[in-house]
Design a protein around this nucleic acid. Structure first.
Length: 485
RNA sequence: GCCUCCAUUGUCUAGUGGCCUAGGACGCCGCCCUCUCAAGGCGGAAACACCAGUUCGAAUCUGGUUGGAGGUGCCA
């Protein structure tokens, strides 16, 4: 039988990284099995609707390379794929359950429920719907509906015995039925709840494997009761461990660290993000760490999914990102880095190609570029202490003579010959002639023209990038500073 | 509270009774290279939550304890 998986997000306007990973596993499994990956939009909560939110979902999935085989915009045999557009088809199923005694009308209002819930809590108990409306006489139910009283339809859960099911990653799950709540199937506004719609749709859409977050582990028995009541075959369940921010908190919107777009905006590469995410909760069984999407499909195996929650480690993601950036061609790197160069270098006459060469290996995340190269646009304020470096055998005094040595050499290079090669050869020759150590001359030079303890590139590269005029200006300024020190 | 799940270095993980003096990766530390930083090379510190039991033998099996997570919504 053909495998059919689905990703069923709510259009909230953002794609949570946990969601991206859930989508990824669904996609990988479907493709691995030669099956279909279906996208379904779960927008039954009318109060949380967000304009344009489905586009965020489409863009993210496509951007990640996860193209769905059936979905709202691409169609398919089981459409529509947006739950609000399927609104009318849920009620008949609910009515069928009412008729068979598996569900019932409930007229308790939200206020009443809240009051009872609060009262229970005050007593130190936990509120569970008490089937208050289960045994309302049929006539009364009909009368109240006719009078226009708002109602919901609730599931009638058994109160004795236990329910069990098998989960592909968590194994056999057993729940006492008396802990099952009579959940709402149809809301007062006529919309189905997620709990109901997802069962109906998964069945109607022929979903064979339900892969979703572990937060659904304990509501699954209720879904199975629904399948049973309809006489439908239950899907296979694959619950996924939670992605955490730290050991006690789920990845949340706090700190701008939970959404796909947060990372893309900062300059993380989609491929790196996907590669990293695939490894939080799953591993290939060997030491491989780098995977293309095709390789992930090839390697993916439900049996190697983990149970324990995994913490999202930005440092490791960043390492992956740096590795992916290093593997970029120079052309691609420059294309991606250019906007970030522009942020601080806009309008400056600068050899971007050379700058890109210098920055390529040093870029971990694109958003860190501006801070690393700002000194090229503007000489930063710096302390004279920077001239002191024990290992380079430099101190302000050494620096004075070093700059004195360099200045005329640099001045002697005409604008037309201002290349890295020439600068290098002349300066090195002068250092050799003077019988000095490279570091003792080059460290002060680099400090004078960058004002930074560390820079992407050494004195020669920076002097070249800066240009003759700016370099000479900075060296002289450095000399002036050292005179006054 | 109740129900369910989880538990190997700081983090992701390998490990399914002897190949484990617990392997890999990130991060961290040191050394080398070197005009700084990064990259690269080499090396290092760092874990089986705890207590019982089963067994000739346990990170691996069982029970309990502790810690953590999820659920307990007319959210999904």
């Amino acid at each position: 039988m053909e495998v059919r998986t689905r990703f069923a997000p709510s259009p909230t306007g953002f794609m949570h990284l946990g969601g991206v990973r859930t989508a990824l596993y669904n996609y990988l499994f479907a493709k691995k099995m030669g099956g279909k990956f279906i996208l379904r939009i779960e927008d039954t909560d009318q109060v949380r609707l967000v304009e344009g939110a489905t586009d965020v979902i489409y863009d993210t999935l496509r951007g990640c390379g996860m193209q769905w085989d059936e979905g709202p915009d691409v169609g398919g045999p089981c459409g529509p794929y947006v739950q609000s557009e399927r609104k009318d088809l849920y009620m008949p199923y609910a009515l069928q359950l009412v008729a068979s005694g598996h569900a019932y009308y409930c007229f308790c209002t939200e206020e009443e429920l809240k009051a009872r819930r609060d009262a229970a809590q005050a007593r130190g108990e936990v509120f569970k719907y008490d089937k208050h409306c289960l045994n309302l006489p049929k006539e009364e139910v009909e009368r109240r509906i006719k009078e226009g009283q708002p109602y919901v339809i609730r599931m009638n859960c058994p109160t004795e015995g236990e329910s069990s099911y098998h989960d592909a990653v968590y194994g056999d799950m057993i729940f006492p039925n008396d802990t099952l709540d009579d959940m709402v199937l149809i809301k007062a506004d006529g919309m189905p709840t997620y709990n109901f719609a997802n069962v109906i749709d998964d069945h109607l859409m022929g979903i064979t494997h339900v892969m979703r977050g572990a937060e659904y582990l304990s509501s699954t028995p209720k879904y199975n009761l629904l399948y049973d009541a309809f006489g439908w075959e239950q899907p296979k369940y694959v619950h996924l461990p939670t992605v955490m921010r730290d050991s006690t908190h789920k990845l949340s919107k706090r700190d701008g660290d939970a959404y796909y777009s947060d990372f893309i905006d900062k300059g993380y590469l989609t491929e790196a993000l996907i590669n990293y995410l695939a490894l939080v909760g799953w591993n290939p069984g060997d030491d491989r760490e780098f995977f293309t999407m095709d390789e992930l499909i090839e390697a993916f195996d439900v049996n190697r999914l983990n149970k324990a929650p995994g913490i999202f480690d930005v440092d490791k993601l960043t390492w992956f990102n740096a590795e992916y950036i290093r593997r970029l061609s120079s052309e691609d790197y420059l294309k991606l880095a250019e906007p970030w160069f522009d942020k601080v270098l806009h309008g400056k006459n600068m050899d971007y190609a050379r700058l890109a060469e210098l920055m390529h290996d040093r870029t971990e995340v694109f958003c860190r570029i501006p801070d690393m190269i700002r000194f090229l646009a503007e000489m930063p304020e710096y302390s004279v202490d920077l001239y002191t470096h024990k290992k380079m055998k430099s101190n302000p005094e050494v620096a004075r003579s070093s700059l004195a040595l360099c200045l005329p050499v640099l001045e002697g290079i005409p604008e037309s010959e201002w290349t890295e090669q020439v600068i290098h050869d002349r300066v090195m020759a002068a250092i050799a002639d003077a019988g000095l150590k490279n570091g003792a001359v080059l460290w002060p030079l680099r400090i004078a023209i960058s004002g930074m303890a560390s820079t992407p590139g050494g004195a020669m590269e920076i002097a070249y990038l800066l240009g003759r005029e700016e370099t000479l200006r900075r060296v002289r300024a450095g000399q002036a500073m050292l005179e006054n020190a």
